[in-house]
Design a protein around this nucleic acid. Sequence first.
DNA 1: CTCGGGATGCGT
DNA 2: CGCATCCCGAGG
Length: 188
Amino acid sequence: MTAVPGWLRLPREFYQRDTLSVARDLLGTLLVREHEGVLMAGRIVEVEAYLGPADLAAHSSKGLTARTATMFGAAGHAYVYMIYGMHHCMNVVTEGGTGTAVLIRALEPVCNVDGRTQGPALLCRTLHIDRRLNGEDLLGERLYLAAAREPYRCRVARRPRIGVDYAGAWARRLLRFYVSGNPYVSRR
DNA sequence: CTCGGGATGCGT
DNA sequence: CGCATCCCGAGG
């Protein structure tokens, strides 16, 4: 049984809420990954919300396909995809069956983090997260999120999402959330 | 089947 | 700013 002392695994109900609330509340929580007997963890300091088929920046805007099936699946599972033929990005599925998800963009290292975590592909590389974890239940042992008993106090900044200029008006919406002033937030 | 392009990161 | 590198979705 893997666990981080003093932290509580986020329950299914956490993810089964509206995506903006989940995105905001993910800031400060711990992303925990167990790989080859090593327990790695980092505090989430930057995320982006993807709001379903109507959101032209979301993969689910293509509808239900082989690739987006996980996004349209149950809340509290990981949606992991390959990008540019060489990188991976990790999302958590929200609500449930709605094609909504939150992209994890940056972590502040907490435990056994050996590598950079200042960007969605960097954190996946460092935590050994790839497509084999697509669909992984976040209430399992290999990959999950956890919250401290005390609430995480921080100033939250909202900005447009990164790298989605093709999405028209959706590109301008303030769907990127990050911990203001945290040095591990990705720069751009 | 071909083809265009991508929720990135790194080097120039 | 160019580019690596390959999967996916659209179209013929």
